[in-house]
Design a protein around this nucleic acid. Sequence first.
DNA 1: GTTTTAACACCTAGGTGTTAAGCT
DNA 2: AGCTTAACACCTAGGTGTTAAAAC
Lengths: 223, 223
Amino acid sequence: MGHLSIADDTAHEGAVASDKCAKAPQVAGIKVQLEMSALWQQFDQLGMEMIVTKAGRRMFPTFQVQISGMDPTAEYVLLMDFIPVDNKRYRYAFHSSSWLVAGRADAVVPGRVHFHPDSPARGAQWMKQTVSFDQLKLTNNLLDDNGHIMLNSMHRYQPRFHVVYVDPRHDSHHYVHRNFVTFTFRETRFTAVTAYQNHRITQLKIASNPFAKGFRTSDPDEW
Amino acid sequence: MGHLSIADDTAHEGAVASDKCAKAPQVAGIKVQLEMSALWQQFDQLGMEMIVTKAGRRMFPTFQVQISGMDPTAEYVLLMDFIPVDNKRYRYAFHSSSWLVAGRADAVVPGRVHFHPDSPARGAQWMKQTVSFDQLKLTNNLLDDNGHIMLNSMHRYQPRFHVVYVDPRHDSHHYVHRNFVTFTFRETRFTAVTAYQNHRITQLKIASNPFAKGFRTSDPDEW
DNA sequence: GTTTTAACACCTAGGTGTTAAGCT
DNA sequence: AGCTTAACACCTAGGTGTTAAAAC
């Protein structure tokens, strides 16, 4: 896939892109719908936490989207990155069950991107089923060489989803700002942690993640 | 990946291609080495059998190769197909522990190809580690719509491995016969079966396939 | 004191040959 | 009779939060 940098010259809310600059027709009409939106919002209201480990940890819920409005025959690359929500470090106050600012952010880690492993593929392929980023893993290991997303624990992040049209023209780098579009879902924000802080987050993860079924105690179909 | 047909105008023995027609420089020097060659030969001497099921069954051993001599920056598609060794149907004579011809082949099934899921990718990517076709599955279901390789049970097949150079020229279809190369390993031939016939094949599969460890009785490191 | 790590039991998901029943 | 199917127990492989110890 090589190197690729995404300028943050777009700002999107929810499923529809709204841009400042003119977009190529291959990306102008693209619409994206977040899957499991209700679950994401439930976590968001509690203050989402995502575990980061040295070896790399999946996100839960998995970031999954349904895409429409692509050119079925055009080729696209799909990728995600994670940007700091602010330049603060946080700590959790157990007595008040709330997050407090604990100072300025630690040194920023090299910002990696995660290409969807099916990239590149044609629009028809991306649109015919839900696109799942279940191979994406988060790590707190700043020396990671497994290609995982590196994050600082106790910092807040905003996942972003990018669609890049693979322009067959040789001078396509001149048009790169016109050939991609970014989607941001605010309800997917989270605090990176090495261990869950808010017990209600833990309980909702146990209740909704099939791999944590072993820790369920009651109410098999509460969710 | 779309439609693609491979003419059988090449004949290769072992790891090195030897062609009748001139090949493009991107494929001319490609060499391929079969992994687990000793194990393949052990099975081959007993008369290899591969299970086919309605839902699709992996091959064991998995077809894996190490590739060298690609252009690191050129793009290639890797794929496999399976051709009948002859036009015969076989049956196994338990009393003599040998295969007998049981008549002419059944109606030929639609010949499918299996594209390696990482295709297309650059030569550097393919060469830096073993290429494994562990997602390839064999089925005897002639109505299969999972994209599996369809074979007739009690027939003999020869797996083939193809490397296709993705020519960026628009008229590349005029050069397709120059842009691909085929590798055939005789020791990977097998008879498709719905249940193992030769008990020694069963024992060697149990001894060498980690997923069959539950059926091992003795000699933990015979192999 | 707060945060991180590693081993762990308990799951999901799916690849094995076995076996008995079903098919032709 | 020969061949195929489906349920099954037993594995591999890896995703969970828990827990106690370690790190800072």
